[in-house]
Every structure is written in C-alpha cells, then in structure tokens.
Design a protein around this nucleic acid. Sequence first.
DNA 1: TTGAAAGCGCTAACAA
DNA 2: TTGTTAGCGCTTTCAA
Lengths: 343, 343
Amino acid sequence: MGDPPISNTPATIDDVAREAGVSTATVSRALRNHPYVAESTRERVRVAAERLRYVTNSNASRLASGQSRTIGLLAPLLTSWYTSEVVAGVEEVLAQARYDLLIGTANALARERMFRGDASFHQRIDGIVLVDVFCSEAGAKQLAALDTPSVVLGEQLQSVTSVSVDNARGARLAARHLIELGHRRIGMVGGHAHLDVAHNVPTERAAGFSAALTAAGIRIPEQYIEDGDFTIEGGRQALLTMMRLPRPPTAVFLMSDEMAFGAMQALREMGLAVGHDVSIIGFDDHPVSGAVGLTTVRQPVRDIGRLGARLMLDELDGFGSLMHHPIELTLVVRETTGAPSSI
Amino acid sequence: MGDPPISNTPATIDDVAREAGVSTATVSRALRNHPYVAESTRERVRVAAERLRYVTNSNASRLASGQSRTIGLLAPLLTSWYTSEVVAGVEEVLAQARYDLLIGTANALARERMFRGDASFHQRIDGIVLVDVFCSEAGAKQLAALDTPSVVLGEQLQSVTSVSVDNARGARLAARHLIELGHRRIGMVGGHAHLDVAHNVPTERAAGFSAALTAAGIRIPEQYIEDGDFTIEGGRQALLTMMRLPRPPTAVFLMSDEMAFGAMQALREMGLAVGHDVSIIGFDDHPVSGAVGLTTVRQPVRDIGRLGARLMLDELDGFGSLMHHPIELTLVVRETTGAPSSI
DNA sequence: TTGAAAGCGCTAACAA
DNA sequence: TTGTTAGCGCTTTCAA
C-alpha cells in the first residue's frame, strides 16, 4: 500500500475517478450513497478517495446541485443566553446533516425583508428557522406563501411548522406556586425582548399569570408591573422601583432568569433576604440558576433548538407535517421562594 | 423607473451585464470595487444590480476564485460561556468581512489532524483560529510550517500570531487581594478544561497564584488544591471537599467564575456566609457575576475574540505581524471577598 | 478601461 | 449499473 502520493494541490473528483478506474459521475454517486452503484464499485471508490485524502469541494457541489445546504436563522438579540442556547441546539443537529447555518438578527428591517421574500436573503438559503420572532398567523401565512421550508420556534402557529412552550401555562405554574406559599401581594416583570415589534412571549406569560391570580381572587395592581427588558440590569431596576413602593409586593415573578438574577441583586443591595423577605421566581432555568438557588419554570431550551432543526430537515426531505409541537414546562422549586414574611 | 421585473429565478451576473450593457467580467470587477473600472460604468452596474436585486452567488464566486472565504476555528468544549463569548467576538468581525466560520471541537484527534495539515480540514479553509488549544512552541512551529494563516488565542507564542492575557499576573492579582484582606489559609481550584491534553491556562494561573503566596510567606498545602473541571458542579464539589477539612481555608481562588458560582452554592448549602465566613474569588467576569456580587479577575473575553479575528484578517491580507498581543486583566472587587472571620 | 472565453470542481440528465 | 457531457454562476487571464 505505501504512503499516499503527497501532492500540494488537493485531490479532485477526477483524481479519484482515475485512481478507482471509474467515471467522475460514479465517484459522485458512490460517495453520496446513491442507489444504483454496485457495492464493489462503491467500496473501490471509497478506498481511492481515502488514499488520496479526497474531500468534496462544497462550493462546487453546491453550485452544481443548486442546493445551498444553508439554513437561515433569524432571532432578536443573539447574545442572550436563551437565544444562544437555542441556536446551539439548531446548529448541533444541522451540522450533523451537513447543513450550514446563516444567522441574522431579526430587527424590523430584516423581518420585513424576510416576509417579503427578499432576494438577498432567500437566494442563499434552503430554509428558514425563526427563533422568537413574533409573526402571528398573518405572518405565518406570508411565510408559507414563500414556499421556502420554514419552522417557527417560540409561537404556536397553524400555517407553518412551529415549536413552542405553553407560556401561559408556565406562568400559571409560577403564579400557583406563589399563591400556595400564601402570597397575596405579587409583582410581575416582563419586557419587550429588545424588539421594536410586538412579541407574544411576554404577552402570553402576563396573561397566564394574571389569570391564575384572578382565579385565586388576587388582583395585580399597576405598580406591581414593571418592564425589565429581559436583562439582568432591567430586572434589578424593576425591583428597585417596586420595593420602594409604600406597600411593596412580597413575591415577584420575572419572565426570565436573567432578570431574576438582577432582582436578587437589587434585594441584596437593599438588605432584604431573598426567599424570606421577598420571594423571587424566574423563567428558563439558566445554568447558573441552580447555583444561586433560583426557583424557576424550566424550559428545555437546547431541545427546542434541536427539535426545530429536525423538523426543518424533515421539511427539506419533503416530510413536512405542518404541525405544532408543544414542549413541556416544569416548575423547579429552589430557595428563592418561601412563605411571605410578616413585614 | 417602475417596479423591478419580478422573476421567479434569481438574477445572475449575466442578467446584470445585459441590463447594464457591459460584459460579465466588468460586472464582476465593478461590484468588487476593482480598480480599472470607470466610475460611470461602476455606477451603471450598481444601479442595474440594484434593480434586479442581484446578489452574488457565493458558491460560484468561491469556486471560481479558489477562495473558500472560510476560517476554521478549533476550541475545546464549545458550550462554556468563555468559549462561546470568544467565538461570538470572532464571528462578529469575520462576518463583517464576509468570511464564514467553520467551528470544530478540539479533541485530541482534531488537534492531531490540524497539526498534521490533514486535507479534510485544511482544504476547506483559508485560515485557522485556535481558541484555548494548548499548542506550546513546538505546535506553533508545526502550525507555521503549514503556511495556512493562523492565530492562537489564549497562549503567548513566538512562531505564530497570538493573543492572550497574562494568566500568572491575573492570578497574582487575585492572590494579593486575598493576602491584603488578611487571609493566610488560602485554597485554589483549577481544572483540566475538559481537554485530554495538557493546558497552559490552569498551569499558568496556578504558578502565578502560588508565587504570590510564597512571596508573602504563605505555603499552600496539598489539601487546599482541588480540580473543579471548570464547571459549576465541579466548583461545588471542590468546596464541599475542602470545607470538610479539619482546618479549612478562609478564602478560595477559583480559576473561573462558573466554578466560583458552584463554590458559592456549596457554602450556602453548608450554611456559611460567602464573603464573611469564607471569601471567594473567581476569574472571567461572567455576566452573572455582577448580580451575585462575585469578586473576580475580569478578562474582556469578547474583545479577545474580536482582536483574534482582526489579526486573522490582517494575515489574510498579507499584513501578518507574527506578534504576541497582550490583553489587560483587571481585578473587580465585589462582595464575595472580605477579611477572614474568626472561626 | 473593457470584453471574450476558459475554466473552478462538481452534479444530473441522458445514453449506453 | 456506469459513462458522457453539458452546465451551475462566477472569476480571471489574455487581448483588444
């Protein structure tokens, strides 16, 4: 066998064809596991390719096949823990299927372009994954009309394949936990998720939370509702404001763990004991939440990304099911929630 | 002017050439800002391209030019906060320069392949960025011999462009802070960073830390040194073990903030007051560190990634400088460190 | 300053 | 089951 012939220029499909004594078409078919290739031939090609350390030039392959093998992903604020975790899940699955990911920030302009089917975006991709970009049924219909395979993560839709948690239910879980502990003066911190457009997530969570309180005969006053911008500092500011009220809440629900971290910081700064003086509950189950003892509503974020990617691959293969895929939420009780103190 | 002609197939360079009344070669040159194109022609081409919503097909472009416009990035454990932050910085700069990033995990096999100049990796990329992959001068020389532009992040090297913090100095900063507070029984938690190979980061930090203690006449006993695996849980276990000693340390240095979070959790579980009973100091300045009041050594992680990418672009443009680029570290004192209590 | 034309390395009809 | 051949859309000599 000996050493493979070392050459400074990488081997091409022609080199492999010559080495294996077949045509380039056969090499192409053999290496991509096409049917109608004799097993013996396939093996011979494999060996030749191995020997020459051949790898297909993806640019040539994509150009010839007309497939970009690239999925576009749009998300608001790529730097949040939640988003990067979803993206990691999507990428993990797509990479295994040898698809590339083209990531873009979903500001109003990008949104508009995408829904309009703007060439500069759509020409480069085989499919679109939307992460937490609120589209509503109307947007979903436009998306479907584009006839580019698409999957929406974070919202339940009819006209397009979607994956989401039941935000209202998650918020109810949080509300009931606080109610059962005996809280009556309960605050809530949401946000606009850095989007210049409406967003379903805070809306749905707010609705579910309020509904559960109402069912227990509790009204949530204006002053107990703040916008925390879905950031640590936003959560801090929200609590600083709320706790200065003459009659502050004894428990606060923050719609993300990151805001809850800020809330905990604010309480510490004010000399209040989290879980004793004031209860805090978050949403997500961030990796650090366990370490700081934060009670929260867990969503399997990376799994959401993985599932989204798998659904995209299905659509690409023509197995699109146009279904909604619900994801389970669970309450994780830790140390930041407790019975209301007698302050 | 009217509406641009809507067509179902995307415009190609030929369409633009026809529309502008020039050859495809001229379109290609005009759009890529080549010299030797009359300004008036360039403008005409631009308008035509705009009108037809033309975007270059990157696969065709890369195939024809032979440039993959892709940078390979190798890092151990892509999921840690540190790594993903560095990667985000690299990607940010590279994306602006219209380069793609091909990310791989740097296990022993991948390392080996890369250093050997394995075709399946090198053929696809124009350059290599190594993040926290310990190569040492010997590896750096192999890298340089590959004549693929390369940048190493996280280690100071001679034979290849590198960016790193002074780990020993950072650790000294941490040590001195604890010493100045009056601590004498000081622990240290490092780790192997999930690599099956040696790693310079924990080694350098350990050396710097010990040196500073020695200079102050303090010896660090065996039992005060633990491996925390650079994870939250690892940090927790390390402290659980250390604090069970008959004479536990009064302060502990953890080589990452994530380990420090675990340490804080362990102390809370044991009913000890962080910053009072036991002082904790980390390394990184994770986004959550501010919220939990963690004293730490800050490194501007994303900037490291950004700078690395810029240096790569320089090399690609032939402005490689083969220098080491030091990054500044700063001590951030918050609430988890204080004078030793009298337990 | 511009155009003609030959590929880049691969895939996909179509034939055999 | 395999080979022949015509492109995919662009860049880049070379000539003009």
